[in-house]
Design a protein around this nucleic acid. Sequence first.
DNA 1: TTAATCGTTTAGATAGATCTAAACGTTAAG
DNA 2: CTTAACGTTTAGATCTATCTAAACGATTAA
Lengths: 179, 179
Amino acid sequence: MQKNIDRSRENFIQGISRISSFWGFPKAMGAIYGALYLSPEPVTMDELVSTVGISKGAISTNVKNLERWGMIVRDFKLGDRKDYLRAEIDFWKIIKGILKEREKNEFDLALKKVSESIEMLNEEECSAEDKKLKNFYDGRLEDMKQFFDTLDKMVGLILAFDDLKSLNLKKLLSKRKLK
Amino acid sequence: MQKNIDRSRENFIQGISRISSFWGFPKAMGAIYGALYLSPEPVTMDELVSTVGISKGAISTNVKNLERWGMIVRDFKLGDRKDYLRAEIDFWKIIKGILKEREKNEFDLALKKVSESIEMLNEEECSAEDKKLKNFYDGRLEDMKQFFDTLDKMVGLILAFDDLKSLNLKKLLSKRKLK
DNA sequence: TTAATCGTTTAGATAGATCTAAACGTTAAG
DNA sequence: CTTAACGTTTAGATCTATCTAAACGATTAA
């Protein structure tokens, strides 16, 4: 019969897999992170193959991606060709990294695309009949541009903190009343 | 030759489609929202078929989902069986709705899953040799639980604002220095 | 040199999500 | 009652992401 400690572990890994899938990542990616998160010692890829139950190739790919998101770290040992993997356990640090690399780029790109559309709109004179529509487009596009711009600034501001934990909204907001 | 106003429109819709895809939604969903966002008048589904270039069935499905996310609104007219669609243009409102329905549920679920794992861990006595590992699991699981808990509170706090625009982080933070 | 052990890459298989086309149920008009 | 105009649902096609299995290159050991 299975031990509680193992059931607990599997339940946890299943949960992480679900979250991973929800956020648009492969389930296996979550499972790998979960397995590493509950390992007292660094883990090799071959161990993950048997633990997580997917092929070596898939492990390799997912590990590489997890590394890119700053969710795991790869350690090396001299005279040992194995890679030793361990989970990054500072979640705020992970969020920060993701905001910086993944979302930030997308925000920038979105912002750029809208700005670009605005420019296109103004490149050339248009007929009188289009004037009204053009103004409408212009208003909506500017609205969205401003939204992305604000979002961008917010992210930038959040990133300015060395430690996200210090961004304690609750404490912050209890002190002031905003209109 | 194509007018600038149309090129601008297409460029914009393409951009929104990209964002949509990036966040794990269908491209078509973004395209539909983009088309509605740049329409001065409410739009019918049949119009979307020709504008966006996908089948009526796909329009129907995507429109329903957009509606669920609070990104578009469906209007009805008496004595007219057509549905009139328009974009929700208050982005903060949209974010709030998504946080409330989609993410909130996921956070709760994640939190619950971790708590559940912790309970499992403590259900029964374990052998002395497992004691150390159990304590390790317990520590990590509690860490994660606390993280989700904080996240949950943050979301709750954000939702407490009637208008997200009033949550002006920049202004807020400039007034105080946090340790 | 040969064999074994790594992580990575790739070709093809598989699965899941999304699309199309068509059938459907409903409502209003003729 | 019949027909037309809607939005919705569904069966099957298609497309994309991910997986497996196998080949690969590199490194160490024998």
